[in-house]
Amino acid sequence: MTAIYRTEAGGQQVRERYVEALRAWPVPAEHRRVPTREGETFVVVCGPEQAPPVLLCHGSSTNTAMWISDVASWAQHFRVHAVDMIGEPGLSAPSRPPLDSEAYADWLDDVLEGLGLTQAAMVGASLGGWLALDYAIRRPHRVSSLALLCPGGVGRQKWGWIGKALLLKPFGLWGQRRTLRTVAGLDMAGAEGFLDGMALTFRHFQPRKEPLPVFPDDALRRLTVPMLVIAGDRDAMLDSRDTARRLAAAVPHATVHLLPGVGHSVVGQTEPILAHLRQATAPADAERR
Rank of each mutant, 00 (worst) to 15 (best):
A75C: 03
S61C: 09
D84T: 01
V71F: 00
T62K: 12
R79C: 13
A72L: 05
M66P: 04
I68N: 10
G87K: 09
A75F: 02
V80E: 08
I68A: 08
H81T: 00
P89Y: 02
F78S: 07
D84C: 03
D70G: 14
W67V: 06
S73H: 11
A72F: 05
S69W: 13
V71R: 03
R79W: 10
T62C: 13
H77I: 07
T64V: 15
T64M: 05
N63Y: 06
T62G: 12
W74N: 08
H81E: 03
G90D: 11
D70S: 15
A72M: 05
H81D: 00
H81Y: 09
H77D: 15
H81S: 09
S61N: 04
R79F: 11
D84P: 01
W67A: 03
A72E: 14
F78I: 08
W67R: 02
A82M: 05
L91C: 11
S73D: 14
I68C: 03
V71T: 01
N63S: 15
A82E: 05
P89E: 04
I86P: 02
A72W: 05
T64I: 13
W67D: 05
M66S: 13
S69I: 10
F78T: 07
M66I: 14
V80Y: 09
M66F: 10
T62R: 15
R79Q: 15
M85W: 07
V71K: 02
A72T: 06
Q76H: 10
S69T: 12
L91S: 10
V80S: 09
V83T: 01
A75L: 00
G90M: 09
A72D: 13
T64P: 01
R79V: 12
T64Y: 01
V83A: 01
T64H: 06
P89W: 04
S61Y: 03
T62P: 04
A82V: 06
V83E: 03
A65T: 11
D70C: 15
V83M: 02
D84K: 02
F78N: 06
E88V: 07
F78P: 08
T64K: 02
Q76M: 11
R79M: 12
S61I: 03
A65F: 10
S61Q: 04
P89Q: 05
H81K: 01
V83G: 00
M85T: 13
S69D: 14
I86G: 04
N63F: 05
F78W: 09
D70L: 12
D84W: 01
G87T: 09
P89N: 06
V80N: 07
A82D: 04
